[in-house]
Structures are given as structure tokens and as C-alpha cells.
Design a protein around this nucleic acid. Structure first.
Lengths: 248, 248
DNA sequence: CTGTAGTATGTAACATGCAACTCGGGACAA
DNA sequence: TTGTCCCGAGTTGCATGTTACATACTACAG
């Protein structure tokens, strides 16, 4: 009964976190089928909070109920990762730009905290801890941008990325690259340089996408190309060759 | 018991739709407090499916549970609308660009269907029906872009927009403008003109934002400025004046 | 009249009960 | 051996029971 810390927090949300974590670390294998009753017994709670937590997870696309059969743990496919990174590029790059515009001293301190120091980042014992630091830094930036919905949306995207990323090995060289890219973004943000920060974020995301997708397919270049180009072409937007309604 | 059509669909999802609709049309007033038991009695189902549906709605930010007090219907503030339109601009404009790139004949037919004809659009008796046609057209475009998560995300954003927009009156002149803008977007998409379609979509979204926010505040210009500029500055991205890492 | 303690009511959160359904596996026929 | 029918274990979806708590209201003291 005390497996889950008996805080003021609702049982349902505690179960939600526990299940989410179990899925991310692969303790609940992708594709596997489970019953609410078994999960409840395992967590030493009744079926209700478990079912309620699973409903939220199902809305996020992490699991799927199968009537009279059980709850399926969904796996994040390479195509899912493409969707995730397309959206992250679309959202995080402009958000980083925005953050640089309105950043305050307190924000900078928060960001520095979230960035952490190189040794701790590289020395993270588990892939999970590393991902937490990674997502934490990104989240801090999005919070600075000031759009709450944006933060939630990207949090959900991260869930899927983590499901895929935790089980696969991360090279230390790649970790060092990631940290360096974070540093670059941080530096530009600190300087209030919107374009620079956005460019740095964009490169960072594109590199991350290449890395992750490369783990799936033999040929990374082709798969990552679509989310990448999606953004590129967006630049042409600034030349309205269409209507005469002109400038505001 | 037969108030809700007894299909193969789960009771919970039917209740979800019913509650969502009730909230959007204002039948459940923003800010009001309700109990799961009363709602269940009213819908002639047990508390379980109602609670489960409300959990999903709470995750989407439409309602909030208050322990031992009830379920609060949340209202969409002007600030919420700013967030919604910032995100819609960030997502839908590039998605429209993308859609124009990969559009197929079958897609064009779908889009024409979703666009509807002018008379039906202008003659929509209720504001709700009008919004449904509006969101339906946008959704068709996003579906063409091919990113499922994108479609879901924007659907949720629409929920909030509808909560605000249904109760307020829409001028017929504005409706005509909206339809014309849809036509413009459709035409560019049909032509496979990415930049043109994106520009048209951008203008359409900015106009919509101005309209909606104008209903809230006396001075529309200032409030809409932030989501607008957020995108504007994004254009500067294409000139990396930052690092020496140059071209890929 | 004013403030306060005590209590009754209503609620979400959680636990449990129940029914319809899926599906694997075994008995059995050919 | 092979195919078919049937049954029972296991599951979700939905209904209902239980508990602790937040709040409004009442009665009463000052």
C-alpha cells in the first residue's frame, strides 16, 4: 500500500507517473498486452486509479485499450519519430526565438540550472537520466517563451521520443555533441540573440533527429530529410507574391 | 437510456462527445461547477463513463476537477486565444506549405468537399455549424500534410477557440471574408503552389485572430500583435550570421 | 447584531461488483 | 491427422458501494 508515496497527490496521478516511467524504461514492453487488474495488483492499488491513469496515457497515444482483451503498450515507430521531430522543429525553433526576445535575468538563471554542467551531463549513469536532463533544458526554454500549451504539447512529444530512445545506446561522443549544442543555444539566449538562438536550436534538433533515426534505419539521411525540408521551404513565406493586400 | 445512440461505440466516448458539445455551445456555462453524479443522471448513464470522459476533457484543459467540490467548466480567456493562434500559425502555415507539395487529386476532391459552397457556408444557421465547416476545412488540409499528431493537436486548439467563438455573434460580412480566404487557400493548394498557399493561410489565420480577439478587447491591434510578430521574426532565421559551422 | 463552533450535506476519489465479450484449448467427429 | 464445436478463463466497460473531506448553514454565545 505504501509502494507509492502517500502524498497529498491523487493516487491516479501517481499511478500515471509510475506507468509512464515503466513504459519509457521498457519495463512494460512495447507491443505487450496487460490487464488493468494485474497492473493494479502490482502497484497495490485498486483498478480505478489504474484505469483512469491508462485513459490519459491512451489519449497521449502511449497505450491503447482493446476491448475484452487488455491494454496494449504501443511502440514508437520510426515514422512516429519523424512526426515528432517535424513538430518539434516547427514549435521549438520559433519558441527559442521568442524566448531570446523576452528573456529576463531570472530566466537565464533557470536555464543555466537546467543546462547543468558538462560532467554531470556526460556522466549520467543511465540513458533515462540523460534524457531527463536533455528534455529539462528544452522545457526550460519553452517555459521562457511563455506559452503553456506549447510546453504541454512538446512534453507529450518527448514521451514518445523517450520510449524509443531509452533502450537504445547513446555514444558518449554524441552526448558531448548534444551538450555542446545546448551550450550554444544557451549562450545565444543569454545574449538575447533571437536569430542566433533559433539557428542553434534548429541545428541541434536536426542533429538529434539524424541521430535517433539513424538508430532505426541504416541510411539516416533520407529519413530525416522530410522534417528538415519542411522547415526550409517555410522560409520562402516571407515573399508574398500572391495578393496586393501588402503590409500591415 | 436511449438518449445516446446505443452503437458499438463505447459509452464513455459518446459521453465525451456530448459533454464536449454541451461545453462548446455554452449549455454548461464557463466557470460553473457540476457534479459527476448530476451529469450522469442527466445523461442517464452511471458515473463511471462520465468521470472517464471528464478525465479526458480535463487533460485537454476544458474542465478541471476540484476535490470534493465538483468539476469546473473552464473558460477560454483572451490570453488562451493568443496561445491558440500562436500555435496555429506555427503549425498550420508550414503544414499548408507541405500539403501543397504532396497534394494528390484525391486530396483536392476531399478539400473541395470540406470547403463546401459559399451559400451553405454563409447560410449556416448557427454559429456552431459555421465553426464546424471552418474547422473541417482546416482539418482537411492538415490531414493532407500527413502528420497525424498535428491533426490531433490542432483539433484540441480548436476546442478552445470554439468555446469562445460560438456564443459570440459573427457578422455575415466576416463570414464572407472567411470563406473567400478559404477559397484562396484552396486555389493555391490545388495549383500545388506551396508558398502561395502558405501565405494565404497565414493571412487567413491572422485575420481570424484579429476578429476573435477584437471581440474581447476594445483594441484588437495590440493583443494580436504578439502571436503575429512571433512568426514574423522567424523569417530572419534564414540568415545565419552566427556560427562559422556554415552550410551542411 | 456579530462572530463562532458544530453539524449536515454533497462531492471527488477510490474500491468493488457485475455482465458481455474474446479467445485459447480441448473434446470429439470424420 | 485434421477440422469443428464448445466451454471456461480472463478481460474490458460499466454500475454501484464506501470513505474522507470541503463547504454551507444553523444554533448559539457574547
Amino acid at each position: 500500500m505504501e509502494t507509492i508515496s502517500e502524498r497529498g497527490e491523487s493516487l491516479t496521478s501517481q499511478v500515471h507517473r509510475a506507468l509512464r516511467q515503466s513504459i519509457i524504461v521498457g519495463e512494460l514492453a512495447p507491443g505487450s498486452l496487460h490487464s488493468v487488474a494485474k497492473l493494479a495488483e502490482r502497484l497495490e492499488v485498486s483498478r480505478s486509479p489504474v484505469r483512469e491513469a491508462l485513459i490519459s496515457l491512451a489519449d497521449q497515444g502511449m497505450v491503447a485499450f482493446e476491448r475484452n482483451r487488455g491494454v496494449r503498450i504501443l511502440q514508437t515507430t520510426a515514422h512516429d519519430l519523424e512526426e515528432v521531430f517535424s513538430l518539434r522543429l516547427l514549435l521549438e525553433v520559433p519558441a527559442t526565438f521568442r524566448a531570446a526576445q523576452i528573456i529576463a535575468p531570472a530566466d537565464i538563471e533557470r536555464l543555466r540550472e537546467a543546462l547543468g554542467d558538462r560532467d554531470k551531463f556526460l556522466g549520467a549513469p543511465t540513458m533515462l537520466e540523460h534524457q531527463e536532463m536533455d528534455s529539462g533544458f528544452h522545457r526550460a526554454i519553452l517555459q521562457t517563451a511563455g506559452n503553456r500549451r506549447l510546453v504541454n504539447i512538446v512534453d507529450n512529444l518527448w514521451s514518445h521520443q523517450k520510449m524509443r530512445g531509452v533502450s537504445s545506446a547513446g555514444r558518449s561522443r554524441e552526448l558531448a555533441d548534444i551538450y555542446s549544442e545546448h551550450e550554444a543555444v544557451f549562450e545565444r539566449l543569454q545574449a538575447g540573440d533571437g536569430p542566433g538562438a533559433a539557428v542553434a536550436m534548429r541545428q541541434h534538433l536536426e542533429n538529434s533527429a539524424s541521430l535517433l533515426v539513424a538508430q532505426e534505419t541504416g541510411d539516416p539521411a533520407e529519413s530525416v530529410e522530410s522534417p528538415l525540408r519542411w522547415l526550409d521551404l517555410f522560409a520562402a513565406l516571407e515573399v508574398p507574391e500572391t495578393s496586393a493586400s501588402g503590409q500591415a
